[in-house]
Structures are given as structure tokens and as C-alpha cells.
Simulated assay, not measured.
Amino acid sequence: MKPDPSLLEHLDRTWSDPPGFWGFLTTVDHKRIAARYIVTALLLMFLAGMLALDMRWQLSVPENTRMTPQLFNESFSLHGSTMLFLVSVPLMEAMAFWLVPLMLGARNMAFPRLGAFSFWLYFGGVLTLWVAHAIDITPDLGWFEYPPLSGPAYSRGTAPTSGPR
């Protein structure tokens, strides 16, 4: 029995994304969401790599004045947080977004809107951390925020920084 062409057309309209920029923003296709995660994580890996090169440049010569100690600590913290929480974990999540529905033979993942929303939450976290760096309020607690850098001896007040540069 051949399916009704009007039914197939209706299903295509139902399963397709809206056209244009709004469709790009609101897609629930697991492969497109995974691609967003991958592209964002790779861009962040590049930015964190530039921070690492900048820190290495600072350490390449004794008494180098490229960075202040405060900026070095902030760069170290931002590099570590980015690589751990904004690159490594999201890349693995992107692989799951992409592969699990394909391995199960499903059209999409369970709760596709929640999966799309998770990317936008991730992107909001990226903006929160990197905009803080752009406006010069980056935390400087080190890679894992362990003492002594995160302890009271190296912090003034309740903010997670050692004070102004």
C-alpha cells in the first residue's frame, strides 16, 4: 500500500524547520544541535589555546612584563575553566547528541526541545564567562579553584579575585 502524498507532504512540513534565521535558532534536529555544540567548542578551544600561548609567552623570558600576575592568574583560570567545562564536556555531549539517535534508529532524540534549550544554556554560560573576561572581572582561582588561590589569603572580600590589577 502506497502512502497518501498529502500525508507525506503534511509530515514533511511538520518535521521540517521553519525557514530562515528563526528556523536556525529554533531547530530541534539532533544533528544540527550537535554541530552547534561542536563549532562552539572548537571556537572556544581556539580562544583558550590563544590564552595558553599568551601565558607561555609571559613565561618564556625572565622578568617579562607582558602580563601582570593578576592577569596571568585570570588567564590561567579562564583557560582551565574553558577547556574543562566549555570544550571537553560539550564535545562529548555533542557526540552523544549526534550518535545516540542514529544508533537507536530514532528520528530524533527524546525531548528534542529540551536538547535544543540545553545548547542555548551552554551558550549563555560561554557568554557569561568570556564577557566577564572582556570587561575585566575574570575570576582568578586557578584551574580547579583549589586552595591556596581560592582561599582567603589570596582573596579580598567575597569576590573570587585577588583585587584590581
Rank of each mutant, 00 (worst) to 15 (best):
residue 119 F to R: 00
residue 79 H to G: 09
residue 98 W to T: 13
residue 102 L to V: 11
residue 117 F to H: 14
residue 91 L to Q: 05
residue 83 M to P: 03
residue 137 I to T: 13
residue 118 S to D: 09
residue 101 P to N: 00
residue 146 Y to K: 12
residue 98 W to I: 09
residue 128 T to P: 07
residue 139 P to N: 07
residue 113 R to D: 12
residue 123 F to R: 00
residue 136 D to P: 09
residue 119 F to H: 02
residue 141 L to I: 10
residue 107 R to N: 14
residue 131 V to Q: 10
residue 115 G to W: 00
residue 74 E to D: 14
residue 127 L to P: 02
residue 88 S to E: 09
residue 138 T to Q: 06
residue 104 L to T: 14
residue 120 W to I: 05
residue 93 E to D: 12
residue 147 P to H: 04
residue 101 P to S: 01
residue 88 S to R: 08
residue 108 N to I: 02
residue 113 R to H: 14
residue 73 N to S: 07
residue 91 L to H: 09
residue 153 A to K: 11
residue 115 G to Q: 03
residue 103 M to F: 11
residue 132 A to I: 02
residue 136 D to M: 09
residue 89 V to W: 02
residue 123 F to A: 01
residue 79 H to A: 09
residue 133 H to V: 05
residue 114 L to R: 10
residue 138 T to M: 09
residue 143 W to F: 12
residue 93 E to F: 12
residue 141 L to P: 01
residue 151 G to D: 07
residue 101 P to C: 01
residue 143 W to Q: 12
residue 126 V to C: 06
residue 135 I to H: 08
residue 84 L to R: 13
residue 112 P to H: 04
residue 148 P to F: 07
residue 153 A to F: 09
residue 112 P to N: 10
residue 153 A to H: 11
residue 76 F to H: 06
residue 80 G to N: 08
residue 92 M to S: 15
residue 104 L to Y: 13
residue 96 A to C: 11
residue 89 V to R: 01
residue 114 L to Y: 08
residue 74 E to K: 10
residue 110 A to P: 13
residue 99 L to Y: 03
residue 142 G to D: 03
residue 138 T to S: 11
residue 88 S to D: 13
residue 114 L to D: 13
residue 90 P to I: 01
residue 137 I to G: 03
residue 125 G to D: 06
residue 150 S to H: 02
residue 153 A to I: 09
residue 86 L to V: 04
residue 129 L to F: 09
residue 95 M to C: 15
residue 80 G to F: 04
residue 114 L to C: 07
residue 84 L to D: 15
residue 106 A to R: 11
residue 118 S to M: 11
residue 94 A to H: 01
residue 132 A to H: 04
residue 147 P to W: 06
residue 95 M to A: 15
residue 101 P to I: 00
residue 128 T to G: 15
residue 91 L to C: 11
residue 142 G to W: 02
residue 117 F to T: 15
residue 105 G to D: 05
residue 98 W to C: 10
residue 107 R to H: 15
residue 81 S to I: 04
residue 106 A to M: 14
residue 79 H to Q: 12
residue 106 A to V: 13
residue 78 L to V: 10
residue 117 F to I: 14
residue 131 V to P: 04
residue 94 A to P: 02
residue 117 F to W: 13
residue 111 F to P: 11
residue 139 P to W: 01
residue 139 P to F: 01
residue 145 E to G: 10
residue 106 A to G: 10
residue 97 F to A: 04
residue 137 I to Q: 05
residue 78 L to E: 03
residue 150 S to C: 04
residue 73 N to D: 10
residue 85 F to Y: 03
residue 149 L to G: 00
residue 151 G to Q: 06
residue 86 L to K: 01
residue 85 F to P: 00
residue 112 P to M: 06
residue 77 S to Q: 06
residue 153 A to S: 11
residue 70 Q to E: 13
residue 77 S to V: 03
residue 96 A to N: 08
residue 134 A to G: 06
residue 68 T to D: 05
residue 116 A to H: 04
residue 151 G to N: 06
residue 110 A to Q: 15
residue 106 A to I: 12
residue 133 H to T: 08
residue 138 T to F: 01
residue 103 M to V: 11
residue 89 V to T: 05
residue 78 L to D: 01
residue 105 G to T: 03
residue 135 I to L: 11
residue 83 M to E: 11
residue 85 F to A: 05
residue 108 N to L: 02
residue 141 L to M: 13
residue 68 T to G: 08
residue 136 D to A: 13
residue 144 F to E: 03
